[in-house]
């Protein structure tokens, strides 16, 4: 078989372009979710009465089928409609739960004795948070971002259904044309992308945690 006939090669320029779109949508969505989700996760460790509503909403968002959410957002004015913007909003909503929950879990799982030692020595809440709690919770927090990214890469394939582009374009086209090669031309790069993102973030994780020796993994 001629190599240029192989479908991944044949569609290569298109695959590259859609991979770019795909990554762009995911990066913006996870970025925004991280910027909002981490502070929210910290907030609910401080304000207990916000914990249930915030985690509850994030939980509910996660259970909405993605196709339904995309479809629903098309009809919503201002934030909705057809295109990448709607996809980014939907993916942001999906990314909240792992990020908020992991931030919350990470900070609350810091040994209470360590927190109390800090408070007892006269650290302010801010100092305790920035110097002790966040560094010790960092592996949890980054794991949340990692999970959110992998999920978002998967769900972003559905975004093609509302005209947002991305690798889902091949999948939907393949389904419509009953062409398995086309479906795989979208699915395989998406899977590779998810694996690479997972690997990349865990590399970053290790790099960041190196500073604290094995303290956070070996631990408290």
């Amino acid at each position: 078989m001629d190599l240029s006939e192989f479908f991944l090669v044949r569609y290569a320029p298109e695959i590259l372009q859609e991979t770019g779109t795909h990554l762009f949508i995911v990066a913006i969505a996870v970025g925004v979710a991280t910027l909002i989700g981490i502070p929210l996760g910290i907030l609910i460790t401080r304000q207990v009465r916000w914990r249930k509503p915030i985690l509850g909403i994030a939980n509910i968002l996660q259970t909405i089928p993605s196709l339904a959410l995309f479809g629903f957002l098309i009809s919503v004015p201002v934030i909705g409609g057809i295109g990448a913007q709607t996809a980014i909003i939907a993916l942001t909503l999906y990314s909240f739960l792992p990020i908020i929950r992991n931030t919350y879990t990470g900070i609350t799982s810091v040994d209470p004795a360590i927190r109390e030692a800090g408070r007892g020595m006269g650290m302010t809440d801010r100092q305790l948070l920035l110097q002790v709690e966040i560094p010790l919770a960092l592996s949890f927090i980054l794991a949340g971002v990692r999970v959110a990214t992998v999920i978002a890469i998967g769900i972003a394939t559905i975004a093609a259904a509302i005209g947002a582009g991305g690798l889902g374009v091949f999948v939907f086209r393949g389904i419509a044309m009953v062409n398995n090669q086309l479906i795989l031309a979208g699915a395989i790069p998406a899977a590779i992308l998810a694996i690479l993102a997972d690997w990349g973030i865990s590399l970053l994780e290790r790099r960041l945690l190196k500073k604290g020796s094995q303290a956070t993994t070996k631990g408290f």
């Binding site: 004795a113 360590i114 800090g118 560094p135 010790l136």
Partner: peptide, 11 residues
């Protein structure tokens, strides 16, 4: 303030 050994910051 000194408490049992866990009071040191591990990181």
């Amino acid at each position: 303030y000194v408490i049992q050994e866990t009071g040191l910051f591990p990181h």
